[in-house]
Amino acid sequence: MEPLKTVEGRAYPLGVKNVDTDMIIPAKWLKTISRVGMGKGAFEAMREVSGNVFDDPEYQGSPVLIAGDNFGCGSSREHAAWALNDMGIKVVIAPSFSDIFSGNAFKNGILTVVLPQEAVDRLMEVAKTDPIHVDLETQTVTTPFQDRFRFELDPFRKACLLGGLDEIGLTLERTGGIDRFEQRRDAEQPWIKPVLA
């Protein structure tokens, strides 16, 4: 994964509460075989409403999304994170997230930033005209107007995002330990390998 250190750019001022995974990516996309290309189906129902933020040229290609409470609730489908990734969204800011969604987002290199409602309201306002800036190192969201909001971030997740390490990348750093485990096991329990013709 690409390391995520700072993100600077416009933000989709969505602001809606309880955006569930079905709104992020409808169920019909579940039978696909790829995790790319899903941006086309993202927020499909919302996009049918004229004047929606996603089709507003003002916000095209924004790397940040600002939403209301409980973003990503509903089913555990990882497709929701894949869809955001495919749209180029790197950070989602909301007062709260569903746990499963945050986990899936993190696994796919997307940062979820939890901020109090007042801060989110202020960012929504700024987003309509100006870019915002997210800094992982200092755990802050800032605007061109001296706003500065600090957010909490699990140290493990922070290290992974900063280093561009996905869970697999991290485990691959433990390859030495896995090798040793396998060698010991294969010696002690030679029968453990399946007999594959």
Partner: peptide
Amino acid sequence: CLLYIDRHLVHEVTSPQAFEGLRMAGR
């Protein structure tokens, strides 16, 4: 814990994106 897995069964519905992920990362 990092838990070792001895056996992995794969079917057509939940594996395509996993293989694609490996391919994209060159793993």
